[in-house]
Amino acid sequence: MVEDKIAALLEEKFREDAFADCFLVDLKLHAHNKLDVFLDSDFGITFEKCHKISRYLEQYLDEEQWLGEKYVLEVSSPGISRPLIMQRQYPRNIGRKVEVKLNDGDKRTGTLLEVEEDHIVLEEKVRVQEGKRKKTEVVETEISFSSIEHTKVKITF
């Protein structure tokens, strides 16, 4: 499959020092030979890196004709609207407000405080009953990666 060939080329490229902090997030081949490649980096993917990787992939696509003579290749970062799906994406978002959707359908919203090997720590504001009235408390919640369906970074102004 073309996707497997592209993924292998990217793995090779990511072994180079200049691209060692990069990783593949998603790869989609659409109708009419349109290929979307979503990359990220431990320090934030730049336009320049996307451009260089696009040229690198085009070289093989043109030479090998994996998508024929006419194709569209888009190499970009996942963007803020796409969920975090890889553990490697989380550390760069420490301190940001996130919404975590759990496998059971429950949602948790708060500030991402920590990222560990098997879990994250979220600072949440929760309403608790105290006598006859409710009050807001700030709690730290540990959420295992195995229970997370996806996480979205919430934009705050």
Rank of each mutant, 00 (worst) to 15 (best):
R92L: 10
I85F: 02
P83K: 05
Q59E: 12
S81H: 07
R92H: 08
L73P: 14
P83A: 03
K101T: 11
K70P: 03
E63N: 12
L112A: 08
K107C: 04
I53K: 12
G110R: 00
G95Y: 01
E114P: 00
L84M: 13
G79I: 11
L67D: 07
P78Q: 04
P78Y: 01
R92E: 10
G79C: 11
E64M: 15
H51W: 07
G110Y: 03
L112S: 06
I94E: 04
L113M: 08
E63A: 15
G105I: 04
E114G: 02
V115T: 06
R82W: 01
L113T: 03
S77D: 04
P83V: 01
L102Y: 03
S54K: 10
K52G: 12
Q59G: 13
K101Y: 07
G110Q: 00
I85H: 01
N93D: 09
W66I: 13
E64A: 13
S81I: 01
D104V: 04
I85R: 09
G105T: 03
K107I: 00
L84K: 13
L61H: 07
L113S: 02
L73G: 15
V72R: 15
D62V: 09
L67T: 14
E69M: 10
I85E: 01
Y60T: 04
L113I: 08
T109N: 13
Y90C: 11
S76G: 10
E116N: 10
H51R: 11
K97W: 04
E74N: 11
N103I: 11
V72H: 13
V98N: 11
I80N: 01
V115E: 02
